[in-house]
Simulated scan of single mutants.
Amino acid sequence: MKIKIMIVDDQRLMREGLKTILDLEEDLTVVQLGENGRDALDKIPSVQPDVLLMDIRMPIMDGVECTRIIKQQYPDIKVLILTTFDDDELIIDALKNGAVGYILKDFSSEKLVVAIKDVYNGNFIMQPEIAAKVISRISGKAKESVCYNTDAGLNINLDLTDREKDVLKLVGKGMANKEIANKLYISEGTVKNYISNLYSKLEIDDRSKLTIYAIKNQYI
C-alpha cells in the first residue's frame, strides 16, 4: 500500500516539483496539493493523507497554525515541516503544535523520501543543525517550558524509573517504538506502556512534546 502524501506550499513551482519527484517512488503517491494552511484544511477530508509536507510561512494560514488544527482534528496525520526557514522560534512552535519533524528545503530528494517513510513509521525527524538550534534555544531559556499546558519541562527530578528514562532517551533520539524495543530487548507493547506512563507523569500528550522534553532536560 502506498503512503499518501499531501504537499502544502505557497510556491507553485515547489509543490509541483516535489510532486514530480515523489510520484516516481513506487511506495509513495501525492494525493493532493495545497497553497496554504486554509487550503490544506479544506482539502484534507477528501483525500485523508498519511503524511503532510508543510511549508511554514504562507499567506492566509501559516504552517504552525495549520499543524495545530490538523493534530486536533486528524491526529493520525503526520506533519513534516519542509521549509527554507531555520528560525528557532518557528522550529519550536511547529514542534510544540504536533509536527513530527522539521527539515530544510536544501535536503536531497533521496533523504526527503527516507524522511517521509520514517515519519510514516513513527520516527521523529530533525536535521542535526536543526536539533542543535532547538537544544541551544531550550538550554538558553531554561526557565521557559516548551511543553505547553504543563510545567513538566521545568522539572528534571520527576519520579521516573530507570527504564522510563531509557525509553525517554531513545524517544529523544527520534527512534520509533520498534527500534526502541529492539534496543532495550523488550516488546513493542511494553514500549507503548512506558510511553503512556511518561505522558501521564510529564503531563505531555504527544510524541513531539516528549521529544522536546527529552532534549530540554538533557536525556540525549
Rank of each mutant, 00 (worst) to 15 (best):
K78N: 05
P45I: 04
L90H: 06
D88N: 13
C66D: 09
L90G: 04
L80C: 04
M54I: 06
M54G: 03
D87P: 00
D88W: 09
F85E: 13
P75M: 05
Y74Q: 12
L80K: 03
E89N: 11
R57V: 11
I77E: 03
F85C: 14
G63T: 09
I77V: 11
I81N: 02
T67P: 06
P49C: 03
I56F: 02
Q48V: 08
M58Q: 07
I91C: 08
K43Y: 11
K71A: 07
V79K: 03
T84S: 15
R68M: 13
D87C: 07
E89F: 08
I77P: 01
E65M: 12
I44Q: 06
T67Y: 05
I81Q: 04
V79F: 05
I77K: 04
D88S: 15
D86P: 00
P59G: 13
Q72L: 09
I91T: 04
D62L: 14
I69P: 05
R57P: 00
I81S: 04
V79E: 03
I60T: 13
I44F: 02
K71R: 13
E89Y: 11
V51G: 01
M58I: 02
I81K: 05
D62Q: 15
V47H: 14
V47F: 15
P75G: 06
I91L: 06
Y74A: 10
D86N: 11
Y74V: 07
Q73W: 00
I77Y: 04
T67F: 07
I92H: 00
T83F: 03
